[in-house]
């Protein structure tokens, strides 16, 4: 199986993950400060800044795009409840 890693810089923890894992599946367990409201891509609470490896995340859906733009998100910001790590190394911190 291909390997992927996701690093939460605010708690200095790297998780080895199966490709396809969503950030939301890990961030609370490692104690990262990323927080969630709706958990389904609507509220923008889980806005997360991608420090490295943005290209290794799944493409944003139309809903995620809308919520990101309504939240005036930067080009390296994503919704942690939506995006998946597809492979390689990704580093994130709370938005």
């Amino acid at each position: 199986m291909e390997k992927a890693t996701l690093t939460f810089t605010d708690v200095s923890i790297t998780v080895n993950v199966p490709p396809g894992t969503r950030i939301i599946e890990m961030s609370e367990k490692v104690g990262s400060g990323i927080t969630y409201g709706c958990r389904e891509g609507e509220c923008g609470t889980c806005l997360t800044h991608v420090v490295e490896g943005a290209e290794n995340l799944s493409e944003p859906s139309a809903l995620e795009m809308r919520v990101l733009s309504e939240n005036l998100a930067g080009s390296d910001d994503r919704l942690a409840c939506q995006c998946r790590v597809l492979g390689g190394n990704v580093k994130v911190r709370p938005g």
Binding site: T5, T7, V11, S12, I13, T14, V15, N16, V17, P18, T21, M26, K29, V30
Partner: peptide, 20 residues
């Protein structure tokens, strides 16, 4: 050390995390 930024970075496996 977490406050001073001197904490050693840690690595953990997904399966171990899932068990938490």
């Amino acid at each position: 050390q977490q406050l001073t930024g001197t904490a050693a970075p840690r690595e953990i496996d997904f399966a171990e995390l899932a068990a938490r």
